[in-house]
């Protein structure tokens, strides 16, 4: 069972990766200037106050000892307590994770729909003006970064034609019956389409801003590999059977052409998740990224560590999912 083997190998490499990430983030945030104690105390605090507060958070111990305490905690599922909010880091981080996951997945779905549509249309009408127009649009989408798209969208659909909400995750006055923080999914499951619409109206622009550059990448790469696939013998053979151009693209070419794109989408999706940090800030969206920025501003060391570790877990999970999907889509890998 190659899938089982992939999983085992991945589990091992993931553990090593996470250990590396833990070491780097722990020491780097302690080397950079600024410390949480200085942020907490009012001006004019005495040396004694500083020492007492440092001791309270264990920041007076040698670095290696602090690291040991943190790691042994993490191994037992205790990621420490946030310095600013005094709440367990794990609760804070897991509370925000659903918001970011929903945003990223919505952005990914949008990117695949937009990019896929661009690639298929471009392939169907290849060599003509339609393909040229798609190439130009792709180029534009690619050359503007996601946060600028965010500003453009806010201007267009938040200010000029205000159809979407420009900040937050849900209208604050609404009564939320949710038991999880997966608002988007839970509202669907509870058949509360009114809430769902409100949530989508909040998520639409940040998700689209994240999606546009990825859509352009998908569109370009998929179109390229579709066009190459269209010249292969099995596609020609399908034409002689009486299939029209659209059927040939969808039935014969798409699945084979999607494979190289999929690998890239996996890598790009992790960049997209990284992009949520700024986009969430821009749209005041209450996700992990927004929390990460606050944590850095406040030098909330345990919280920063927790968020970074969680991001690392997400990245490796995404890569694993891509590898598994690849195996499913490509029958040649299944019996390897």
């Amino acid at each position: 069972m190659p899938i089982l083997r992939i999983l085992l190998v991945r589990l091992l490499t993931t553990a090593i990766t996470l250990a590396g990430v833990a070491v780097i983030v722990f020491f780097v945030i302690r080397v950079v200037p600024g410390n949480p104690i200085a942020m907490m105390l009012p001006p004019g605090a005495t040396e004694e106050d500083i020492a007492r507060l440092s001791a309270l958070y264990g920041l007076d111990k040698p670095l290696i000892a602090q690291f040991g305490i943190w790691v042994s905690g993490v191994l037992q599922g205790d990621f420490g307590t946030s310095i600013t909010t005094r709440q367990p880091v794990l609760d804070l981080v897991l509370g925000r994770l659903p918001a970011t996951l929903e945003l990223s997945i919505m952005a990914l779905v949008m990117a695949m729909i937009l990019g896929g549509a661009a690639a298929l249309t471009g392939t169907r009408y290849r060599g003509g003006r339609t393909e040229g127009a798609i190439d130009v649009a792709n180029g534009m989408a690619l050359s503007v970064p996601d946060f600028l798209w965010g500003l453009v969208l806010i201007l267009l659909f938040g200010v000029l034609v205000p159809v979407f909400h420009i900040s937050g995750r849900v209208t604050p006055s609404l009564d939320l019956p949710f038991t999880t923080n997966f608002y988007l999914f839970e509202s669907l499951l509870r058949l509360r389409f009114d809430l769902w619409a409100d949530i989508v109206a909040h998520m639409f622009m940040p998700a689209l801003a994240l999606a546009i550059p990825l859509a352009a990448i998908i569109g370009q790469l998929l179109k390229q590999s579709l066009k190459e696939t269209m010249n292969l013998d099995y596609v020609t053979l399908a034409r002689t059977k009486g299939y029209g151009e659209t059927r040939v693209i969808l039935r014969e070419a798409l699945r084979n052409a999607a494979l190289p794109t999929l690998t890239l989408v996996g890598v790009q999706f992790t960049f997209l998740i990284g992009g949520t940090v700024i986009i969430e800030r821009l749209f005041s969206y209450e996700g992990l990224g927004n929390m990460a920025i606050d944590a850095v501003i406040n030098r909330d060391l345990p919280l920063i560590q927790g968020i970074v570790i969680l991001f690392a877990v997400i990245f490796t999970a995404v890569n694993l999912i891509v590898d598994l999907l690849y195996t499913v889509l490509n029958p040649r890998l299944r019996h390897g």
Binding site: L232, D233, A238, N330
Partner: peptide, 9 residues
Amino acid sequence: DPLTALNPS
């Protein structure tokens, strides 16, 4: 060419 004329997927 029978090797390229069948759809691999």
